[in-house]
Design a protein around this nucleic acid. Structure first.
Lengths: 263, 263
DNA sequence: CGCGCTGTTGAAACTTGTCAAAGTTTGTGG
DNA sequence: CCACAAACTTTGACAAGTTTCAACAGCGCG
């Protein structure tokens, strides 16, 4: 199954010692190379070629393992680096003063984490692993410096940030104008689209998040999410076995969202 | 009153002809200078000093008048420039395929518009003036080029984009976890805070948007917004006379949002 | 001066949340 | 490997909050 293929490591990390960088991180690390990474076309260096692609290798010196439930950074932490998901699925969550929490996003391979920290110089949300995974650490000072030299990298970075803004507009639309079932359908279609881009099946996947986390993201209670799943199943649009989802009628699912949402 | 002061033009535009720029805009324009602008500490060049501030003058060659109801750009338009609000209030709106529309933000002096366009290379929302106003046109290619030379400008730009992301997370929190009254209270507090930063009264202002636009932004129907206004008035938190709002008890308003939201 | 847009308010309908109970799966430790 | 506890999911009944529909008032523009 394709799912297994993409989890396979198409990459051999090479141990080496890196001289102390000027941002205070001087431990022996795993050398990673963006130019050889299986995710290069999904990730920040997407579109870079030739010399530019090689220079992108200077971006990432460490890849960090994160175990299920562990966080990459927490709300309030000083901002130092961006992170690119290499494997696993993550969620970002934000707290309201009175303790209410919301999931503001789910991130999978190739997606960037931490851009919220640049402006305030500290993270405004927490990033938590939903399963064991790895993230590439991109020291922000390095990205800034390299961006000035490698024009295409700078552009790429701006595009990534911009797309983050666009995507959040989409979530605002979802939260502001859609009903429960429309929200869930949109969520499933979005997930499907992103999985396809990563070489997985568009119609069959395992959710890494709980009903509660989905609900939090969609502005719904977990019971409502559960009911919507059941409804879709009763209507023959999907089959649900706990976290295992099969999309049986993708067109029907799209019709549940007013009309269609992704082409 | 402070409101009048900030509308006054503390700046004299100078007519001049600029040679054709390489992004196809060759009409006679108004020369503007960021380094002398009354908004420089609120806007993109915030924090630049000395030589850097002067170089920022190369960023903006035109300021564009936009009349109430007119749009700066529309969803789908090719992306060429960013815009900085110089005067007036704007809204950004996004459409859902079935015709539902949502207001995704309100922008006032010093705030940037158009960053959603960088990634997709076309605008993913429309920007419309709620009253007559002016925007500074920042050709994106120029910002990119100048950013490579003026380090601090580049950093500033990244911060602006990042803050946009953070702010949208805030809206997601609002839409995903708050009730009608909490949403409106948050909206009013946010407005008040931004007005203060611009030298206006924190407690008395005129809304430039209709109840429907507020509702759209907050994910509510206009009737619900109207009722929440009335409730706040009955409770002595604010006074409402059509669009004229006076905040009578800002602490009380904060208490309506679970606890507090802005310090 | 009147028409249209905007805003307010009431009552009924609908959607989602809340509470509760029970079933299922997962993980842990003996 | 089994037993048990904890976490997660499903479902029902009812409550609460918001929308919908409707009527009317006020303001502002032509």
């Amino acid at each position: 199954m394709t799912a297994a293929a993409a989890t396979t490591v198409a990459f051999s990390p090479v141990r080496c010692d890196i001289p102390a960088s000027n941002d205070g991180d001087a431990v022996p690390v795993v050398l990673t190379r963006c130019s050889r990474c299986k995710l290069r076309d999904l990730c920040l260096p997407c579109g870079l070629s030739g010399r530019d692609a090689e220079r992108a290798d200077e971006l990432v010196y460490t890849r960090r393992r994160v175990r299920r439930g562990e966080s990459i950074y927490r709300e309030g932490d000083a901002f130092v680096s961006l992170f690119a998901v290499w494997s696993g699925v993550f969620k970002t969550t934000q707290l309201l003063e009175d303790g209410r929490e919301q999931v503001t996003g789910f991130q999978m391979a190739g997606e960037m984490l931490g851009m919220d920290g640049i402006g305030p110089e500290k993270h405004s949300c927490s990033a938590v692993a939903l399963e064991n995974g790895e993230v590439c650490v991109i020291p922000y000072s390095r990205l800034e410096a390299l961006g000035r030299e490698v024009h295409a990298l700078q552009q790429q970075f701006h595009k990534v940030m911009s797309r983050e803004i666009v995507q959040e507009h989409g979530v605002m639309l979802l939260l502001g104008t859609m009903r429960a079932e429309e929200r869930l359908a949109t969520f499933l279609l979005n997930l499907s689209r992103r999985l396809v881009a990563r070489g997985y099946s568009p119609s069959e996947f395992n959710l890494r998040m709980t009903r509660e986390e989905i609900g939090s993201y969609l502005g719904l209670k977990l019971e409502t999410v559960s009911r919507a799943f059941s409804k879709f199943q009763d209507d023959g649009l999907i089959s649900v076995e706990q976290k295992h989802i099969r999309i049986l009628d993708i067109a029907g699912l799209r019709r549940r969202v007013g009309q269609k949402l992704e082409p």
